[in-house]
Amino acid sequence: MTQEIILETRDLAKHFGGLKAVGGVNLRVRAGSLHAIIGPNGAGKTTLFNLISGHLKPTRGQVFLRGQDVTGLPPHRLAHMGLGRSFQITNIFPNLTVLENVRLAVQARGPDNFKLWHDYRRFSRYISRAREVIEYVSLKGKEHLLASALSHGDKRKLELAILLASDPDILLLDEPTAGMASEDVPELMRIVEHIRQTTGKTILLVEHNMDVVMRVSERITVMHRGRVLAEGTPQEIAANEAVQEAYLGSWGTRTG
């Protein structure tokens, strides 16, 4: 496996007034790996994602994408550099059909966005690619439903489909299973694992479900109060005393 560092943060920090949501995080993500970030609520995981994806500007520190400093670039620029993300709170186009949600994601990476005088339905490659992705996340048959009419589990799948369709090299998945019924979780995680195995894309995952994290990730970063508490393989993390004290103990009882 390649050891290239595709994504790196150096002393990345975000302060909201006196609150240090992220207080100097150094993160190195290898290309092609599945890297999980775990931590209790309020540890700063989502804020870290927002800093990486350009939705927030850092108070301090830098973000590097393939060695290039991308700190403070707007989300749409980062998207064109191969960084894509999903959101913890479902973030779709509610009054458009499932197909149109995904088709817009495909179109985003194409060269036709500023064509004002052509019917969008004539760009059949976007539509056929969108249908492929919809089938991949097992939403086939629901193409013409409005996104707002989907069940919560299907909305999470759509969220993933939108991300996949925009064909990023690095996927930031912010709790892809958030709010899902437990019986739906394995299917979604199978899709996530399958993505990595078949495409070699890098996945940075925030997840609460410990079973899932321990099973799928290669490396885990544990965050606590805006800082990195520990980093290592799942085995190392499971054996780390500081982590157990701060975090896993309470989780062991919850996930049982």
Partner: peptide
């Protein structure tokens, strides 16, 4: 798409 969800549209690269 911007009407529906501007943040999402921007995150897709628009």
């Amino acid at each position: 798409a911007i009407r529906e969800n501007e943040t999402r549209a921007a995150t897709l690269g628009y």
